[in-house]
Simulated assay, not measured.
Amino acid sequence: MENTPTPAPGEMLASAHRTFKTEIAALQALDASLDGSFEQAAAMLLGCQGRVVVTGIGKSGHIAKKIAATLASTGTPAFFMHGAEAIHGDLGMLTRQDIVLAISYSGAGHELLTILSVVRRMGARLISVTGHPGSELARNADLHLNAQVEQEACPLNLAPTASTTAALVLGDALAVACLEARGFSREDFARSHPGGALGRRLLTFVRDVMRQGGALPIVQAGTKVPEALVEMSAKGMGMAIVVDGQGLPVGIFTDGDLRRLIARHGDIRALAVDDGMSRHPKTVPPGALAVEAATLMDAGRLNQMLVVDDTGLLLGALHMHDLLAAKVI
């Protein structure tokens, strides 16, 4: 490309440091300026009977969308409403039980001022986040949060940089304050993120991943080893579950047990699984978390584990491969 500028060595890195310092200074100033208005805003969000509707235009709109997502995923029902789309029909999303969180550094955007008038007529409440406490949006909101910054990281002091960072962090602070006030737990977070790693770990139970019914390799006590091997090969779990006459598991016969039996006896064709099975196999209840079962299996260096009810009745079996496939480990 012609006329591409060639920065001097270290110039780009120096620019990055200036940006970091400018935005850190903006956050420090914002932290120092927090007052009772923040607590009032958090209390309003906690007491909201509808949804928190976060709105903005341009760069502030991008920040608003992220804040809405953070609120929603941490226990405060929320959604994003684009400021421009709002005045062309999306205001129909609002109800009088909602709280609008409007983000605009200037506090003078036509779209958000139009939204303000509609919110007022509807009887809903509005919290504004601006960098100009004297702006029309700030003066007419139910509550105003001041996110003013001394300067943008942009050397022209034009591109929203430090100001959008300040608004983002203020939104995060509101979300976290509400999260803590609600006693929002890891389990609550997992329910909002069932597709994530934490969700899988906290919401996947043994009963969800265990093999059961006809998929289980089951043989009766006294079964000859060759017959047990046929069942083991057919079911692909690397073991056979040995049960007594009442169907209660009395042991498991694994590939390792087979190798050890051959090492001891050589010809095993006349032997029964009872001669080589592992007695008193480790078990887990179906209501245990799958990740807990994985921990037990890993600690015991086990590839398989039986699933039983409170009476010891066999319900299913786990294989380490099942836990890996379910992505709980």
Rank of each mutant, 00 (worst) to 15 (best):
C178D: 00
E150N: 14
A175P: 05
A197D: 14
L158V: 13
S163T: 00
H144T: 04
E180G: 09
F189W: 06
A175C: 02
G131D: 01
L168E: 07
A190E: 04
P160V: 06
A138N: 05
D142I: 05
S117E: 15
Y105W: 14
A190Y: 03
G131N: 02
R139I: 01
R120L: 13
V149M: 06
L198W: 09
Q151D: 08
G171S: 03
S185H: 01
A190P: 01
P155E: 00
A167V: 07
S106Q: 05
E187F: 15
L137M: 11
E152R: 01
M122D: 06
I127R: 07
P194H: 05
A108I: 08
S128R: 03
A173Q: 08
L158F: 13
R121T: 14
A141V: 10
A173I: 10
D172C: 04
C178V: 04
L179T: 13
F189S: 06
A177G: 11
S185P: 00
L113W: 03
L145D: 07
R182Q: 08
S128V: 05
G199H: 02
G134Y: 03
G199S: 09
H193E: 08
G107F: 07
G123Y: 04
E136T: 10
N157M: 01
L174R: 06
S135D: 06
G131R: 01
G109H: 11
A167K: 08
S104T: 12
Q148N: 11
L168M: 13
V176N: 03
R120V: 14
A162C: 06
E152D: 03
L174V: 13
T114S: 15
L145E: 09
R191I: 04
T130G: 07
G107R: 02
N157D: 08
L112M: 12
L174P: 06
N157Q: 01
L116C: 11
T114C: 14
G109M: 09
A141D: 12
H132C: 14
R121Q: 14
E187A: 15
E111N: 13
F189H: 10
A181Y: 02
A166N: 08
A159W: 09
A181F: 05
V149I: 12
A124Q: 03
E187M: 15
A159H: 12
V149N: 04
A159R: 11
E187N: 15
A138M: 00
G183K: 04
F189V: 02
S106A: 04
S135Y: 02
V118A: 15
H110M: 14
F184M: 11
E152N: 02
E152M: 03
V176R: 02
T114D: 15
I115M: 15
A173T: 13
I115D: 07
T161F: 12
